[in-house]
Amino acid sequence: MIQLKDVSKTFTLHNQGSAVIEVINDVSFDVAPGECVALTGASGAGKSTLMRMIYGNYLTQAGTIRIGDVDIVRAEPREIIALRREFLGYVSQFLRVVPRVPTLDVVADPLRALGVPADQAQERARTLLAQLNIPERLWSLSPTTFSGGEQQRVNIARGFAHAYPTMLLDEPTASLDAANREVVLSLIEEAKGRGAAIIGIFHDEAARARVCDREIDVSAFTPGLSSSSEAVGQTQETAA
């Protein structure tokens, strides 16, 4: 369902002496329907970067990233937009919304974009917000003033509103209490149960062990970082 082949990424910082940062070198792996794969590795290894590449948010310099039958690396913007609308969900670390839009509409929005009638989309949004313990009195307010944990739960509700066949989750359980963490893990299990292919980043090891079937250690593909030990290999970089 998701297939990465020989994928590499560098950042060139033109306004900082054209410094080149090699983040990912030559990653290949597949994720099958119903499977959840964890990206692991030290902070800065490139986990979020790799996830953003799969979403088409960061450009990929080399390789192919197939989601269903679209190669994200070569797709036109409108193909990526269509893919994101129907096929590829993403729960980012932070919620980003249009100011002034009520929480209920923020959560219903992905369904509205698919042409689901307003009442039906809102019904699904209500179910998710209730499940994630967002007090009903907040539903008509914009989430911009919510606490970090509340925003994160709104973000998750929004990410799970539509039953995407493939999903990317960047630390979905961070900053949640035990009860809400449990809700999120069961949402992930439910998505796996209906055949979604999922890639997740979890700092919470117990969460990872529970929902993930495999791990990919991203440090192994980070030039200058040898897998699981960060101290070695840095010396060659300093010359630039």
């Binding site: 950042f11 910082l13 033109h14 306004n15 088409g56 948010n57 960061y58 913007p77 937009i81």
Partner: peptide
């Protein structure tokens, strides 16, 4: 030119990088 979030989050051209930063 490209997808809006891609150009804003991973700008490729020196001028776009300057604009975003």
């Amino acid at each position: 030119a490209g997808l809006t979030d891609q150009v804003l989050d991973d700008p490729q051209h020196a001028y776009s990088q300057l604009l975003v930063s």
